[in-house]
Simulated assay, not measured.
Amino acid sequence: MNDLNIRRRRLLLGASAGAAGLLLPQAGRAAESAYPERPITFICPWPAGGTADQSMRAICQVAGQVLKQSIAVDNRAGAAGMIGAKAIATARPDGYTIGQIPISVTRFSQLGSLQADPRKDFTYIARTSGQTFGIAVLPDSKFRTLKDMVAYARANPGKVTYAHAGVGGATHVGMEEFALAAGIQLNAIAYKGGSAALNDTLGGQVDMLADSSSWAPHVEAGKLRLLATWGEQRTPRFKDTPTLKELGFNVVVDAPNGVGAPAGLPTDVEKKLRDAFRVAVNSDEFRNVAAKIDAPVMYLDGPEYKRYVASVYDRETHLIQRLKLRELLEKG
Rank of each mutant, 00 (worst) to 15 (best):
Q69S: 14
F249I: 02
G222I: 03
R10G: 09
V66H: 08
T243H: 08
F286M: 13
N5K: 15
Q131G: 12
G50E: 14
I125Q: 02
L319I: 04
A190V: 06
E32D: 09
V312M: 11
G222S: 08
A155L: 14
P217G: 10
P157S: 11
T243I: 07
W230A: 15
R29G: 13
A181W: 00
I43H: 00
G302Y: 03
N282K: 05
A196M: 11
W230I: 14
A190N: 12
K245T: 09
T241H: 06
T317D: 12
R326M: 10
K239R: 14
G18Q: 06
M1P: 11
P157M: 10
D74I: 00
G95R: 11
I88G: 09
G130P: 02
I184Y: 04
L146Y: 07
R315H: 12
T317P: 06
L12Q: 14
R7E: 15
A163L: 09
I135E: 06
P39C: 06
S129C: 13
K142Y: 02
V66C: 06
Y162D: 02
E32R: 13
N187V: 04
L244S: 05
T243D: 07
N282A: 03
S109Q: 07
A151K: 14
L224V: 07
G14C: 10
S214M: 10
G204R: 15
D117K: 06
K306L: 09
P45C: 15
N156K: 05
D200V: 05
L244I: 08
G130F: 00
P47N: 14
L22N: 07
D140E: 13
V137Q: 01
S283P: 00
K192T: 05
L273F: 06
Y162A: 00
D200T: 04
T51S: 15
A179N: 08
P93Q: 14
S109L: 06
A276M: 05
L329M: 12
R92G: 02
A197E: 05
T235Y: 12
Q321W: 15
A58C: 03
Q205R: 15
A280W: 02
G166Q: 05
R287N: 08
G168F: 01
D74K: 07
Q115V: 12
R322D: 04
G332M: 15
A153L: 06
A79C: 13
G64A: 09
S70V: 01
F178Q: 02
S109A: 14
K306G: 12
L146I: 03
E285V: 10
K272V: 02
G166C: 01
R144H: 08
G174E: 04
A77V: 01
G183L: 10
P118Q: 05
D121H: 11
R225S: 15
Q185K: 11
A261E: 03
F143A: 10
P118E: 10
A151C: 08
Y313L: 07
G222N: 04
P256N: 04
D117C: 08
T90F: 09
V253S: 09
V259W: 14
A179E: 01
L114D: 13
Y299G: 02
S141F: 00
I88T: 00
A165N: 10
E220T: 08
G21E: 00
G222R: 01
G14Q: 09
S311K: 11
I125H: 03
V137H: 05
H172M: 13
R278W: 01
